[in-house]
Amino acid sequence: MFGKELIRGIYTENPVFRLLFGLCPALAVTTAADTGLGMGLATTTVLLGSNLVVSLLKNVIPPAVRIPSFIVIIATFVTLVGMTMEAFFYPMFEALGIFIPLIVVNCLILGRAEAFASKNTLGRSLVDAIVMGIGFTISLGLLGAVREILGSGSILGFQLVPGTVDMALVFALPPGAFISLGLMLAALNYIAIRRKEA
């Protein structure tokens, strides 16, 4: 059961590559694998919190004030995560910068609250948050890893290629973010098309 859900989060309904949710942080913080993973974990934490509370309160919140309530709940968790990170994980807090408060406008979180947590049980909502979070984290980590390898010749700070070799720095720069994501999406499309044909 959970395995099937996990596949949904990682592949069939992958938030970044399939649903095109949260592209701003996906492009902005993936200059290296570690910041990509950090962003993924921070977003997962907020997603867990908001899905939990929204699912618990789904019968209490009147439909008319649904969206404002969700926004308040999400913003609260974003701020909590931000404060905790600043206190205990400062280097990551600094590396992610403005994209931590901007988790609040990540469509993935509002989308899951609105489309899933407000209609499902607590257990299912939590599982949804976990698998979607894992999918988002893996996507960002993967994109970060690709850009770090191509741009700096290293992975998670570990140098793969001798530092004397000039790597394609453009992949660490903003244009490389768009190009990497575009090519990765194309590759996924290609696999899907091949599968359909097979």
């Binding site: 309160l57 209490v60 919140i61 009147p62 008319a64 004030v65 309530s69 308040v72 709940i73």
Partner: peptide, 10 residues
């Protein structure tokens, strides 16, 4: 009820 719930959440 709307105001109450939203206020409570806030």
């Amino acid at each position: 009820r709307m105001i109450f719930v939203l206020g409570l959440i806030a």
